[in-house]
Amino acid sequence: MSDTAFTENASSYADGGMGTAGDFFELLKPRVMSLVVFTALVGLVVAPGGINPVIGFTALLCIAVGAGASGALNMWYDADIDARMTRTRTRPVPSGRVTPQEAAVFGTVMAAGSVFVMGALVNWTAAALLAFTIFFYAVIYTMWLKRSTPQNIVIGGAAGAFPPMIAWAAVTGDVSLQSISLFLIIFMWTPPHFWALALCKSGDYEEVGVPMLPVVAGERETRRQIMLYSLLLVPVTLSPVALGFAGWLYAGATAGLGVVFLALAARLARCAPAPDGDKTAQHRAAMRLFGFSILYLFLIFSLLLVEKMAGIAPVFP
């Protein structure tokens, strides 16, 4: 869909009122929300002290809705570029089912609602962190960094890393080194995860003028930076052991997974396009790393959860 098509769609439904409840739900980016809920659940369970299940559920709900609100605001602001990328052109705003104004109001109301409910029913530290996360994603990342620097997802990735920290604060009412270590795992994981995908989709980003690293610095530099961030990521995943809230099962399994992650990143780093410009091998290596990175993060957080539930995690200092 071109810009013109987006404008035509938008103007034909300028009054709004065409979207179904499902379209508004789609604005919340439910697939991203599921990862957010899972990492937040782990933060909630692993944090010391425990929480009433009803209040814990409320905290997760607020985090999910807050993340969804950020997604809606992102879809509102990015509708122009979403309309020109294959992956995103059928989203509710570029396809004209929801007007940009409706998306903006919906996102703002959900954001304010999630922060208020978190503050009123859970605690205000968690609410403040949630508000900051929404602001960070919607303003710092979407409105500012995404279109201005190739390091956009490194800094913007912080927004995706906050949920376990918010959940931890919902239990303890504070921010600690332990919760920061959960934040750092996702923060360091985001660049290799996202750049692996960007290596395969750089054409899309180039067309719409988003300065993704492969577009601006080239594929070789991207592969090098993926390797560097992977080298930083693996020690960071072991920090829960050093900080005393993960045990030997976690340590062994995470180290093993880290070796696989590094091997896939190293394979990608060596995988230059063929002299005739054929990028099949590079794309295959990038997609393998991208696919494994999702499993990697899921398993690391699952291990923390399993250790805690099975009672084999170290007693909290």
């Binding site: 009122g17 065409m18 979207g19 179904t20 409840a21 508004f24």
Partner: peptide
């Protein structure tokens, strides 16, 4: 659709 949204 408006009715459906209102119910939601």
């Amino acid at each position: 659709r408006r009715r459906q949204r209102n119910v939601a």
